[in-house]
Design a protein around this nucleic acid. Structure first.
Lengths: 100, 100
DNA sequence: AAAACATATGAAATCATCTTCATATGACAA
DNA sequence: TTGTCATATGAAGATGATTTCATATGTTTT
């Protein structure tokens, strides 16, 4: 596992926009316009970030007419969400409350 | 789970220095000087980064004389390492090879 | 073949994080 | 109570990531 690989893997989760994109896809695949609406950000911003997520294989794409449909790699993403949720629950109960 | 919480959680793994610190502690607790030697970085750099890891409860500290002994929160860190290793193995076989 | 729609891309500008350096603090030993 | 060892900290500078804006590409519709 190269430094670059795990660096970009975790960076993908660390960014709020990308984290929200992942969340928006938990319910099932969406096209770019739909993701853009759910996450409520600029289209080009979404596209740039989708690219990074896809490069890491956290997302898959397929073309459907002029749309591109993105779907979650849930084998990785769901366990990851569970892991951090558990961590926060067990170790960060207080610190997570004091908002900054 | 606040944005800040998951952001700093993942950021901790995304940084090479901190990732190496975590790795150095898999074998068991170490003091700062020992970590500094294993990771082979400046002492103040190590201290700054230890702080961030501790704030996220990925590390625990205890004082022992003038030393501070850091140990891994292995309940979280080990599963996390396993998760990314598996991801890379299953989905990034090729992309992980082409070094950048 | 032009227009319209959906998405991607490059580059500059902005914003956030990291490291570095100098110095401070805290604990123990002499 | 001074010196030394171990570690932490603040702030500036350096580096890196993200967003933005303008525009390009690709696909379908008319």
């Amino acid at each position: 596992m190269t430094t670059k690989t795990y660096n970009s893997f975790f960076l993908n989760f660390a960014n709020a926009t990308r984290f929200n994109i992942l969340m928006s896809l938990i319910g099932g695949p969406l096209n770019v316009t739909q993701i853009t609406n759910r996450v409520n950000e600029e289209q080009s911003k979404i596209s740039h970030n989708l690219k990074k997520l896809e490069e890491c294989h956290l997302l898959n794409v397929k073309q459907k007419g002029k749309q591109r449909i993105y779907s979650l790699n849930d084998k990785t993403v769901i366990p990851m969400i569970d892991l951090i949720k558990n961590h926060v629950k067990n170790y960060c109960k207080e610190c997570d409350k004091r908002e900054v």
